[in-house]
């Protein structure tokens, strides 16, 4: 296995009395998509900006492509998309991309990249007149224009409409297929689940869990339905196979976990009939990263 694209060990960053990153370690494998998932304020931007060489760590070690983040030669090898801004407001879309392209030895064709990101019609539009999602796409384009071997994307799809989001996901998939290492942050669990080979869930500057999306969500499935609030679940639990769990969260939303199969489904519907309730929106789902996060921290992701 080749050496990792990014290696962070025991990273610590303090802002005054606040410890924003508190002994965080993670490894982003070369050629893989690594997602750093966490709620606002978890320390994602701080971590990624230390890897980009923008902020200095107070403790721990960081290696990017085997080098300390401050090394100049990384500037050409690493593409970055900051969480926001970075483009002169009066600069036109196409102009900015062509400028950044001129800094690189073998850049992509700026017009082709604009076209691919749906910005061809905005090529002559000043940055400040772009919508939030368009600004994000331009920023993504600038991260990719130099054909980097590693890209850092800080909340790449924030502010994008669903269509732009999907095309951004496709592009990240293409990057991976082309052998580019991708490290992205997000607070969208579906994004992490869909895109990432490896997910690192962080909260309050610490890693709370990591693994592939499948490892994190487990093979377990859930049965969910809606019904009138306050049903007594004790009777149901007695009827269910041992090791099952039932809970109401939030009120009126019921989740049954365990060996979800035809038998369990039959037991639940029989119980509903006995209780005289109609189960609505009955569905069988996998546990999501959202559920994992809630379990681990006791808090919602957003």
């Amino acid at each position: 296995m080749s050496s990792p694209a990014v290696e962070v060990v025991d990273l610590v960053k303090r802002y005054g009395r606040l410890t924003a990153v508190d002994g965080l370690s993670l490894t982003a494998e070369s050629g893989a998509v690594t997602a750093i998932l966490g709620p606002n304020g978890a320390g994602k931007t701080t971590t990624i900006e230390i890897c980009e060489g923008f902020r200095r760590a107070d403790g721990g070690t960081v290696r990017v492509l085997g080098l300390p983040p401050s090394r100049r030669e990384l500037r050409a090898r690493v593409g970055i998309m900051p969480q926001s801004g970075g483009v002169p407001p009066a600069m036109r879309c196409g102009e900015w991309l062509r400028l950044v392209a001129r800094f690189h030895a073998h850049p992509l064709d700026p017009d082709a990249l604009l076209d691919r990101l749906g910005l061809a019609d905005q090529a002559r539009t000043p940055y400040r007149r772009l919508s939030g999602g368009q600004q994000q796409r331009l920023s993504l384009a600038a991260a990719l224009i130099g054909r980097p071997e590693l890209v850092f994307l800080d909340e790449p799809t924030a502010g994008m409409d669903p269509q732009a989001r999907r095309s951004c996901w496709d592009l990240i998939g293409e990057l991976r297929a082309a052998g580019v290492s991708v490290v992205l942050t997000t607070h969208f669990m579906d994004e992490a689940e869909k895109l990432a080979d490896h997910v690192v869930i962080i909260d309050r500057g610490r890693v709370v869990a990591e693994g592939t999306p499948a490892e994190l969500t487990g093979a377990e499935r859930q049965l969910r339905f809606r019904a009138r609030p306050g049903l007594n679940l004790d009777e149901l639990l007695k009827a269910l196979p041992a090791g099952s769990a039932a809970k109401e969260s939030p009120a009126g939303h019921y989740i049954i976990e365990g060996e979800v199969g035809p038998e369990l489904l039959a037991t639940v519907t029989a119980w509903c009939a006995a209780e005289g309730v109609t189960a609505e929106a009955l569905s069988i789902e996998r546990r999501t990263l959202e559920d994992v996060f809630l379990e681990l921290t006791g808090r919602e992701l957003r």
């Binding site: 050409a76 001129r102 030895a105 073998h106 082709a112 076209d115 990719l144 071997e149 082309a178």
Partner: peptide, 18 residues
């Protein structure tokens, strides 16, 4: 849709050009 060759080819341009 335009296909892009995203295979890594990093490198800095010569200083005068930048």
């Amino acid at each position: 849709m335009t296909t892009l060759d995203l295979t890594p080819a990093p490198g800095a341009a010569p200083l005068p050009r930048m």
